[in-house]
């Protein structure tokens, strides 16, 4: 814990993540303007003291839109991770712990799911389910489930064959107790770290799908959709695309940094 505090990168990352969470759950505390009602006279203004991120073609304050968009982007990403983790962890745990034929069959299926690029898999799900934030979340979650299952399995297998598990068995500890006392605590950390890393990936995937027009319908200020909206003004109003994009980048960087710390790297 002490080393955690002595690393400035970690502190900055933690602050960014905390700020992002605050935006997600209490946007009204941070927004300076109404995210949906524009001031026509203020349209397409560059960043200034009045409009920190500038305004769009309808005179809406971009900063406030980004603040209110946090919920859509981050909650969708969170839901995606929950879906991916739930499916992946269960499959990986079953596969790794039971082993044998069950393991073989499940892992071959996972091979296939991984063979299809995850964004394509998400697109297939969206194509089947229709558009919107929830289908996007489910799509991204399913896209991530494959790699999650594989990592969970490899952790379970690693721990299951560890010497201390055999030692526990040789002492007469029952299997359920071994599972609870040894396998879970020892395989949890890498799996949690991957889940945390997956949050960053999911934010990217969700905003990419929104950018492509599959996410929450306009005028919802989802971050990817904001970037997409700004494309038409790229030559004249750079901030409309660049600032929301930069926000995504910063949040993802911070989340990944923390995830790596959980994973025990440096």
């Amino acid at each position: 814990m002490k080393t955690l505090l002595t690393r400035p990168g970690m502190i900055v990352s933690a602050l960014i993540v905390i700020a992002a969470l605050a935006l997600t759950f209490a946007p009204q505390l941070f927004a300076t303007h109404d995210p949906y009602e524009g001031i026509p006279a203020d349209q397409l203004q560059p960043p200034s003291a009045a409009h920190w991120f500038g305004t769009d073609a309808l005179g809406r304050d971009l900063y406030s839109r980004v603040v209110y968009g946090a919920f859509l982007s981050l909650a969708t990403a969170g839901l995606a991770v929950v879906v991916g983790v739930a499916i992946g962890a269960v499959v990986g745990l079953v596969s790794g712990f039971i082993g044998g034929r069950v393991d073989f069959v499940l892992m071959r299926i996972v091979d296939v799911v991984i063979a299809v690029p995850s964004i394509l898999l998400s697109l297939i799900v969206v194509a089947g389910l229709g558009f919107g934030a929830v289908p996007v979340a489910i799509g991204v979650g399913i896209g991530a489930a494959g790699s999650f299952a594989r990592v969970t399995r490899s952790q379970v297998v690693r721990v299951r064959t560890a010497e201390y598990v055999e030692a526990a068995r040789s002492m007469g500890v029952r299997w359920p107790a071994i599972l609870v006392r040894h396998v879970f605590p020892n395989s949890a950390r890498p799996v949690i770290a991957l889940a945390a890393l997956e949050v960053g990936t999911a934010i990217l995937a969700v905003s990419a799908l929104s950018f492509l027009g599959f996410g929450a319908a306009p005028p919802a200020p989802e971050w990817g959709a904001l970037v997409s909206y700004g494309r038409d003004f790229l030559a004249t109003a750079w901030w409309l695309s660049v600032l929301p994009g930069a926000v995504i980048l910063v949040v993802v960087l911070a989340v990944n940094r923390l995830a790596r710390a959980i994973g025990g790297e440096r």
Partner: peptide, 11 residues
């Protein structure tokens, strides 16, 4: 890894 492709592309 953290750069969204749509963002870097636009930049």
């Amino acid at each position: 890894v953290a750069i969204p492709a749509f963002f870097s592309g636009l930049v």
